[in-house]
Design a protein around this nucleic acid. Sequence first.
DNA 1: AGATATTTGTTCGTATGTATT
DNA 2: TAATACATACGAACAAATATC
Lengths: 272, 272
Amino acid sequence: MSEQDSIEHPVSEQAPRRKRADEIVDAIKRMIVEHGLGPGDRLPQERELLAQFSASKGTVREALKALEVQGLISVRTGPGGGAFIERMSEGRAMSLLSNFLFAKKLTIAHIYEMRKVLEPLVAASATPHIDAAGVKRLEAIISIYDHEPADATERWNQRMAELDFHGVVAEYSDNPILAFTSRFLQRLLKDLAIAQDIYVQPEPVLRESGIRHQRDLIAAMMRRDAQAAAAILAEHMAEAEQHMLLLQARLEDRFLSETIEPRKRRSRRSAS
Amino acid sequence: MSEQDSIEHPVSEQAPRRKRADEIVDAIKRMIVEHGLGPGDRLPQERELLAQFSASKGTVREALKALEVQGLISVRTGPGGGAFIERMSEGRAMSLLSNFLFAKKLTIAHIYEMRKVLEPLVAASATPHIDAAGVKRLEAIISIYDHEPADATERWNQRMAELDFHGVVAEYSDNPILAFTSRFLQRLLKDLAIAQDIYVQPEPVLRESGIRHQRDLIAAMMRRDAQAAAAILAEHMAEAEQHMLLLQARLEDRFLSETIEPRKRRSRRSAS
DNA sequence: AGATATTTGTTCGTATGTATT
DNA sequence: TAATACATACGAACAAATATC
């Protein structure tokens, strides 16, 4: 059942004896596309599904749970309730993806390697579509961090807002996969443990420079100059990367000097 | 249960009455991290979980199903069987993500907008790590399409192999998120309906040029010239994009001329 | 190869919870 | 408030898969 999603190569690899629940998952998926069901439409209720697949409640329920986790349906109780087609939220997609990347050890360098080339693209593709409301939102976000933070908490909030700034820009991109990737990278930065350490460090001079870049960006977008917008973001990203890597290096130095043993093994434990 | 994954804003929105099965999902997740369980380690068996959560079999099975769909565990029957920690496969991660992007209407232009900047990056980051075995694999792939295809099927296989070429290069990148994104874009191209139409069209001169680029790339990587590798791929991608957009335009022309009505809504679905 | 023990997979009947009217 | 329509949860019994001897 590893790759039962989407349409795969019909290699017909001698039927690995699928489980009933997984068959039902696929059957319901087919039902959805065949009947052209869209968000908000309702599937047959449990009773009917039981009859249709001649399966028991528990089994059908397992199948529905699987679809729910994939973000394809949501289930409501009560009269008129049942399973309804959903469109997967971006947040859920990101959570699912995070589970995959959790094992791989991502670094700030990895993330910025992509942001350096993607954020300029995002800015350029958002430029034709930004409007007054968008500009207003961007300026509201800037106002969160246009002043010295009072304490560590505010400092942290300011760093999060800086990332949100780029998230809002991405909302105006007409490229869905680019916008998603950009925002996902922002979320990874928020989650990365090392980044979290960095975000509570006082920053040297980056803030003024960052804000200047962002105001320049807004101006460029308002005069529909996509090329300029991209150039500004390229510079901004290069600067941010430098800054993050520098702080990271400092943190690691401090960590090493505080540590006695050079390598402290993180012994995975087994329950067997 | 929309966003119970990872740490979300603790807005404390008055306990939306979580479902038992979802509570168990979270409890097991916590159990995994607290005990530091890694791939291959086994969870307690159903019987024990029933006791531990004092829940019924159906309920814990629902929870296990949810974890299974998320790629976190897999369940085996028989003696010594049970639920085992898995590391999510790339294929599964891509399937999950596809479900999210399915609703958005992606175009070839969207995908190549990203590939143009990402593939050069991939090539550069793979350059220090490619080895003789990798070069051999790449050359084997090239040999699939270094000649005129005999029929439509072979033509299609050749186009798939061209995409696989870049997938293999990505395997040697040291940037996990970059490699994943690159390979995901390749998969999207394989799946995109329009792209599938294009791939059965005879190509004009692109093949020789593409193969030349790829041989140049191999040479650049072997002499560890990351910058040259990136430059070659930038050119290659620009050419491929041109080619795809041109063929797409031709297909659309043909489609329009065959159609009586100027705008024939491409209704994804009929039955509703 | 076959028997057996172990563990998940499925079913059925029933009871409880929840939202609509 | 009560009736209704639906999902949610429980428990016991049985079926199927698989490792071990």
